[in-house]
Nucleic acid binder design. Structure first.
Lengths: 108, 108
DNA sequence: TTCGTATTACGATGAATGTCGTATTTCGAT
DNA sequence: ATCGAAATACGACATTCATCGTAATACGAA
């Protein structure tokens, strides 16, 4: 029943954001969050990795300030922190997402 | 050694670009290239690392398609491949550079 | 309460990465 | 022809990172 640690908007660094987005699997998570419902449970993501690896990637994204997570029963709902990101690094997320969609059109 | 291997514009991947830009030292190189003369020699960059480490970072940037390099005497001139990058991933470089300048105003 | 689902925590492992020192190459200048 | 400066190549090392398996936790449902 605990809470997650989320960085404050002011604590979000470009370095953390780019390091998080440098991994293709994490980009696919971000992309699905951007293109789908605002809040999605972890199990909704079809990732070719073990559960514990999935957890690892979600944590990296959360600690970088890219997503926020909250509990709902046994599930965890994740959502994009678009506003905080755009305040801190305007356009970075959107341009990267656009490039990602362009480079990999089908796989959402 | 006369020639360098540069990826074609079509060979530039978002993954390579982001992986290259995930390192703060490489971002500082890119920033100096963006804010200074179009072509700059490696020794012009004041980086707190050994010469061989410097070479390593320039190669990563070159192989990712971020910069192009050519020989001029014993020196090597590096320049940003802004056009190729914007064709492949529009706005990505510019928004990242803007965020970088905003986050670290003085150090250029 | 017991069970099952969703997810995390922990520890291990192999690969990738940033760093360095040393030796080497290239080229201009002396 | 030799020297020095610029940069690379190579090999080594430590750290980080992505991955996994296993065990544990929280919560809803039966």
């Amino acid at each position: 029943m605990r809470e997650f640690e989320h960085p404050e908007p002011s604590e979000i660094t470009l370095d953390g954001v780019l390091a998080a987005l440098a991994d293709p699997l994490r980009r696919s998570i971000i992309r699905q969050l951007a293109d789908g419902p605002a809040e999605q449970r972890c199990s909704r993501f079809a990732l070719p990795v073990a559960p514990s690896t999935r957890t690892h990637h979600f944590r990296v994204l959360r600690e970088a300030g890219l997503i926020s997570q909250r509990y709902q029963g046994t599930a965890i709902l994740s959502s994009l922190r678009s506003d905080d990101l755009n305040a801190r690094a305007p356009g970075v997320l959107d341009t990267i997402l656009a490039a990602e969609r362009r480079e990999h059109p089908a796989s959402a």
